[in-house]
Amino acid sequence: MGKSFLTYVIQRIAQCLLVVIIGITITFLIPRFSPTDPVEAVVNRAMMMGQFSHPDAVEMMKDALTKLYGLDGTLGQQYVRFWRGLLSGDLGPSLSSFPKPVMSLIRGSLPWTGALLLTTAIIAWVTGNMLGALAGYYADKRWSHVLSIIAMSLHPIPYYIMAFVLLVLLAYVIPVFPLGGAVAIGLKPGFNWIYISSILRHAFLPALSLVLVGIGGWFVGMRALVTNIVSEDYVTYAEYAGVPNRTIMYQYVMKNALLPQITGLAMQLGLIFNGALITEYVFNYPGLGYLAYSAIFAGDYSLIMGVAVFSIIGVSLAVLLVDLAYPLFDPRVKHQ
């Protein structure tokens, strides 16, 4: 563990901070540079629903919202105020669940998204890579071709459509799984089988749709990597020396092929997160995605801002974790 390893860690942390800063700055700038500002958007919405008709009331409403959304003062002042609020964990109250603060809503849904995303990302990554590696190593076998065709048809399907099709098939047509939600209504939280099994049953379909799309992608990637690596000189050399297939497969082929897949996982977490958001919406799963949808539905601007900000922070941290785990698998980073 030399100096270069330390440099690597510092670089990764710096990159993570940069992503957070760039992402949050973009989030800050979007409403301030878009042709309609969020106050107008929200007021128009309210007027369309016939809530405020009196011009004075509209003006008052506009003033109040401008203040509430932190849109008063110069851009610089707004930016400083935005960060200060963020760092002290204050994102203002949510308009749709007034006066509940945005932070507490996010805190309530973050664990659901986190758990769903983490489990499915790991399951999909591990299974996809295992199957892909086997299919790549035994590329001439019939089952390898069959698996490839399945994976290639699963992978390009957008998360939304996959979730939707599963919902229709396994909740409407053959109602084996619940239509949505995270747990049966009225069930008391507790560490008992009924509660846990209900959580698992509810999480199954959203998880399955995320896993299916994910497996397809990792499978295809890994299969391609492995078919390249099996013709590397060190693999041929070991084969010629009579090293058993098992050892070659795991220690020579897979260990090398996994490295780009780890980087790939870090790079794709953002995409997978997008998928989780939309899947939650389909299954009414009470995570960030569902929160975002209810915010859109209720015209709750500060809640959407909050979801965007925390998505960026959450994904960046997850990426950092994967990046920091990378040296465990690649001696070229660890032992320079």
Binding site: Y234, A238, N256
Partner: peptide, 22 residues
């Protein structure tokens, strides 16, 4: 000893392990 002396060894395995495998 096949051609490609730079790439005959598995980059993620210690030399001892390779000797062990062989």
């Amino acid at each position: 000893i096949l051609q490609g002396s730079m790439s005959l060894l598995n980059p993620v395995r210690r030399v001892r392990k390779t000797f062990w495998d062989f």
